[in-house]
């Protein structure tokens, strides 16, 4: 029936309609605060980061060694079996070059988010982090960073670590 309709419902507003007060708006700001428990698995993982170690969990049934760690194997749906210290090196599984912040504002010097496959884990398994020392412009970064590139964690100085994912500053290229 859409082809019979001349005009569909809806009144589009312009930003100026709001700025100039042509339509009424009511504003509200959320004030919400949360304290999240890191939980059993991530608690241990973050304690490990504070010591400069990356800890993974291994499942004896499927054999997978995974990060971020969890106390259960979601594949086998059973408790997994042990902590395994893996390396602080890995390979770039994929990356991007971000000029946008969380609020959609723009930055001149981009960040380089990447999925890092961690050495010692099951192939293809890793976590998201940032790449560093790979240039400050899109051209430099694209010339430098390749999928499959070997990288190494740069740790925050031990005294500054808080037991958080940011205890690793970023990953930088290394000789593979």
């Amino acid at each position: 029936m859409s082809h019979h309709l001349k005009e569909f419902p809806g009144v589009p507003l312009k930003d100026s309609d709001i700025q100039e007060g042509k339509v009424l708006t009511t504003r509200w700001e959320v004030k919400a605060e949360y304290a999240w428990d890191t939980g059993v698995a991530l608690g241990e993982f973050f304690a490990g980061l504070k010591d400069g170690r990356i800890l993974a969990r291994q499942c004896d049934r499927c054999g997978r060694i995974v990060v971020p760690p969890r106390m259960f194997c979601e594949w086998c749906h059973r408790p997994n079996d042990r902590w395994v210290e893996v390396k602080d090196t890995g390979r770039v599984n994929t990356f991007s070059v971000s000029f946008v912040l969380w609020d959609a504002s723009r930055v001149k010097v981009p960040s380089v988010p990447a999925v890092i496959e961690i050495d010692g884990c099951t192939p293809g398994v890793g976590f998201m982090h940032l790449l560093g020392n790979v240039g400050t412009t899109l051209e430099e970064i694209l010339a430098r960073v390749k999928i499959g590139m070997p990288v190494k964690a740069v740790w925050r100085p031990a005294s500054e670590r808080t037991g958080a994912i940011t205890d690793i500053v970023h990953f930088v290229p290394r000789e593979g």
Binding site: F46, W102, A164
Partner: peptide, 14 residues
């Protein structure tokens, strides 16, 4: 994830 992802400054486009 509030522990492993948000502290990195993640946004939807990433």
């Amino acid at each position: 994830d509030q522990f492993t992802e948000r502290p990195l400054g993640v946004n939807l486009l990433w």
